[in-house]
Amino acid sequence: MGPLIPNGMIPIEWDSIIAIFIGIVFGFVLESSGFSSSRKLAGVFYGYDFAVLKVFFTAAAVSVIGLYYMDYLGYLDINQLYVHPTYLWGAIIGGIIMGIGFVAGGFCPGTSLCAVAIGKLDAWVYVAGIMIGVFLFSELYPFFEPIYNGYFLGNVTLIDSFGWNPYWVIFIFSMIAIVAFAISDIVRKKIKSVFY
């Protein structure tokens, strides 16, 4: 049956409308759970607030469990889902830069736009920085291109590249998630609470 759009249950023309709807809902949830505050986001690195870790870990684990149950029951074909292509070194270097920017600025690109929407000045500066970065990248594209387009591994997943059993991966991933939540709670209690 699913996924709905590739199998024609929902016409492909609805793509943009659905995307706008999901975007609005996503922004609303980010803002209402306090993710437009750079102090809350940076808290995960300083150990006084682990909401980011908990939210994103839970989201990933819940959705992967749900997807595999739907695949098992025949409501969804997991092989038809879009897998983002892997450019190995591009992803590693980009991840490091993104991480540094996250700690330094206190936003990720999505939450920065959320914070712009509620009028935070630091978010304005952050978004301006993103734009400058985009401009520099575009100007220096010929220089970056070998890394940007190189080391292409295709649309692979961990399960494809290592031949793991997906069900065990999910189970172990969920256990890691619960352990991480428990440890983060212990750490948070030991750190002096920060008012923000």
Binding site: I65, Y72, Y167, F171, F173, M175
Partner: peptide, 19 residues
Amino acid sequence: RYKILAIIFLVLAGGLVLL
């Protein structure tokens, strides 16, 4: 509540392995 949720979470994930 967090412990109960964690147990539900693990049971669901383990169910995938055992099915």
